[in-house]
Write a protein that binds this DNA or RNA. Structure first.
Lengths: 208, 208, 208, 208
DNA sequence: TCGTAACCGAGACGGTACGTCTGGTCTTTTT
DNA sequence: AAAAAGACCAGACGTACCGTCTCGGTTACGA
């Protein structure tokens, strides 16, 4: 989304300035630390970065994509993959890390704002999927694969299902706020995922 | 949110017109059938309703609250509570009804737009909780209570947890769109909730 | 303009309340003492008078006519007609009284506001002429007639012209503010009118 | 009032477009030819000019100042200064030109509207003085100076007074409409000014 | 070493929508 | 039936941002 794509041949003309790019990303991150995405304007980002608005639009097509670039790396870096030796341990570690990252934090507010933005912008939705959800899920999927290798889960365990069972309830409370996001809740969710996994290949259950 | 609050004594001056209110709600609903919430403007609603803008702001403080009033009743009416005689049957019926209501429908798009709006407006978030989430969850909780009465679930089953386990994964796919919302997925989620429920008090203890 | 028109027969229903009328005129006068006519709204007048807007529009068709009624009598009462025994004395007394009334006073500001209002409302312009200009000019014309009777002016002296020669320059400076309105200026204008009057029939003929 | 002020150094950013400015002034002038200033809205001017509202407010702080810029030059150009060889001739030519320009013309209606506007806006009043009244009076003052040079008026003739004696009665009738603005009236006013001028230094008359 | 293409910051551009305000009218209940 | 209250429709107000374009100027490649 940001500056990428190595040109086949060196492109003519003045190249995009790395300083400008960093200034924009820095200003965006700083503003996201202060307030919600919907309260930030492109003009404000440009002014804060000491940059013309055109330099924003030259790189990112919308506020959402820019915020996503300014936000994504930091978020991903806070979702480490640890190997505790058991699926329950891995899941607990992963979901608690997610909880710490988003619960009552500026990062959580930004994440909510980005998900809101995704609902109104199909292009951003694609980017969100490819650049954020896919990698984070690939990382999480490793937990499932290790559990299969250990024999904790059957060979045909549905990793997509299990991940949605784990993260779905958490995002649900994050976005709707109907009930608190607590460590206890996270542990209950982990227990439920364990139960569902042990119950055998859920995809094999009879359905209509 | 809209006209409410029974006056202690008859209020002075010209009362809010029911015709005007209905015209506004009707226009909003019609526009929500055409396009997304974020593409609709208050000016457009007023013009469609043949009403002054002030008559909108006199009743609703924001577009979100208005959309919520125009949308809520319809949505709730499409989430019937049926008694099939078993928890699995009840859950399957409820989640499939939800799926039919939101999957690739205008209602689904509107629901996504409203959830996005809720992320940026605390007042709307409260209304969303009180006027939408709380009643819909109360209705769904009946399923859990019936299962407890039947002996399908232990007495201390955590209905909040079970409902989040059921609806969380569905909303997750609705909002992120990383994987399709299918009947098969719904049935898998039901199976997982059943497994989690049978496993006893999910909040705690080791299970064999 | 205001409450007038004696009913042929006693009118049916509740009569227009004199209290209401006085409250409106009082509120208007009070507001005109505070600020300019263009900064006052009908809603403000109604609120200040503790009266419904309909009670304003029932009596006066526009803000200008109302202001005119609230203002007119006071202004006229401050333009006394004195008989000093000479045209120069009469004119000096009249123009100086006008100067005292309007120079750097709230009355002057209101007068300017009303004249501005008259430019954009033909109905008000008529009222202004009939109810304000005509009576005040009739009163001033007496000065000219007395001067003719004394032999200070020829029998065919054009009183309209002489009055416009006297008041025109004063209103000019009041409305344009290009030069100060001073007693010296008033006296110079009186001298000029005297000269013009003495020169014989101003409408015509060559003079030596 | 509009785009002016030569920049000390080349100004940064995109300069104000002359095309836009002309479009706005043209649209304003066209609308002023159709109807009165008070019936014209900023939105209408922007739409007619094919221009955003911000481009109006970027240049002019109010409708009055804009109308003034659109109107001023045209009006001034219709008040030529001719040298007829005598004060009476010069005055007659100037006042008759004024009469032709404003009597029952769109220009006259606009002039009345602007004078009304000036009464409610101090900033506009200043502009009106500096940019309209001062130059037009400077031009007219030449008539007086030539008359002094010819010996028609004493050396200490008060040009401000004489100009107000000449134009005051005309504006008086224009704004109040109590009596018609005719050529005969103009000639009478000229005669009066001549008489006042010949009567010697009016400023020297005794006063209290 | 020059030309030129694409960048740079600044800010004006045509637009849209905002939420407020006012005008003049209409609809209540109360007097 | 007029009173006070206040909602009604209509639409202008001046502001804020949008995403694009224009300006004078800079940078770095390729000829």
């Amino acid at each position: 989304m940001g500056a990428s794509a190595i040109p086949e041949t060196a492109r003519r003309g003045r190249p995009l300035s790395e300083r400008t790019e960093n200034a924009i990303l820095g200003a965006t991150a700083a503003l996201l630390d202060e307030k919600g995405l919907s309260e930030i304007t492109m003009e404000e980002i440009a002014a804060t970065a000491g940059v013309g608005k055109a330099s924003l639009y030259r790189r990112w097509p919308s506020k959402g994509t820019l915020a996503f670039d300014a936000f994504g790396a930091r978020f991903l870096s806070r979702q480490p993959l640890v190997d505790t030796g058991s699926l329950r341990g891995d899941l607990t570690a992963a979901l608690r890390a997610w909880l710490r990252t988003v619960h009552n934090t500026r990062t959580g507010r930004t994440l909510r704002g980005l998900i809101a933005e995704v609902q109104r912008d199909d292009a951003l939705a694609s980017a969100w999927n490819e650049r954020f959800l896919t990698p984070v899920r690939a990382r999480h999927r490793v937990m499932i694969e290790r559990a299969v290798a250990r024999g904790e889960l059957p060979h045909d365990a549905d990793s997509d299902l299990l991940l949605d069972l784990a993260y779905g309830p958490l995002y649900h409370r994050l976005l709707h706020g109907h009930l608190p996001l607590t460590v206890g809740f996270v542990d209950d969710v982990v227990a439920a995922v364990m139960a569902a996994g042990r119950a055998g290949d859920p995809a094999g259950a009879p359905r209509g």
